[in-house]
């Protein structure tokens, strides 16, 4: 029973939603009779999902508090970092929920320029995130220098493609290409860069997307048939 009920709910909801997506029906206003039920399902399932998504925030926050509180109380490895997480979490939560600093108090906007949450966002969150992201440039440069080598035919193709795209996505690529005589226009770096992005890249991306889609269909069929072990199906 413990496994059967979730499986029946999953299968029933899944089948109803698939049928809703596949049934072709006119504009919502004109729909009447038996087809109206599909509009009702389509509209309300999305809203119900969003209500659940809001609760996920509460669950996520509660889980974060529990995990880090336990770590601090038990003095586990790196408990000091957990303490920083807890203090930051609670402080920002209070500042945001109470809308501190804003001229209109609880009636006002949490993103008002004078609100403390805006100060936290502009003065802490944004510079920290920007700094972390900016450091990537140094890691990419170092990784390119040490790892991007002409070791094999495949790595050479990858290296040449990276070289062309990197150069082609800058004004320097266009400037260098302008030095080419008209007869060699097909060698323009910006044109080659666009070709790499639009042809071999798209072919590979679409192949991956189609492969993923087929995999998702197979997984969905297993779920709906109650055959997926992780969802309570038979072992």
């Amino acid at each position: 029973m413990k496994r059967l009920i979730p499986r029946v709910i999953t299968t029933a909801v899944g089948v109803v939603l698939i049928v809703t997506a596949l049934v072709v029906r006119p504009e919502a206003e004109a729909t009447g009779g038996p087809l109206a039920v599909f509009d009702f399902i389509d509209r309300n399932f999305s809203v119900w999902f969003n209500i659940l998504a809001v609760f996920a925030f509460i669950l996520g926050g509660a889980n974060l508090l529990r995990v880090h509180l336990l770590k601090v109380v038990r003095r586990q490895t790196d408990w000091a970092f957990s303490l920083v997480t807890l203090v930051s979490f609670v402080a920002v939560l209070v500042v945001g929920l109470a809308k501190l600093g804003g001229p209109a108090g609880l009636e006002g906007s949490v993103t008002h320029p004078e609100a403390w949450l805006t100060t936290v966002f502009d003065g802490l969150y944004e510079p920290l995130m920007s700094t972390l992201f900016a450091l990537l440039a140094f890691f990419v440069a170092s990784a390119a220098y040490r790892a991007f080598r002409l070791r094999s035919v495949e790595s050479s193709v990858l290296l040449v493609a990276a070289f062309v795209v990197l150069l082609g996505r800058t004004p320097l690529g266009t400037w260098l290409s302008n030095l080419l005589p008209p007869g060699l226009a097909f060698l323009r770096i910006d044109t080659l860069s666009m070709w790499i992005l639009a042809v071999p890249n798209v072919a590979g991306q679409r192949a991956v997307l189609i492969g993923i889609a087929v995999g998702v269909i197979a997984l969905t069929v297993r779920l709906l048939a109650g055959r997926d072990q992780r969802s309570g199906g038979p072992a």
Binding site: A137, A141, A144, Y145, F148, R149, L150, L159, L167, T170
Partner: peptide, 15 residues
């Protein structure tokens, strides 16, 4: 652009 060129330069030097 300058960052890209520096990376490309080091890519060549590395190889």
């Amino acid at each position: 652009t300058v960052a890209h060129v520096v990376i490309l330069l080091f890519l060549v030097l590395g190889n």
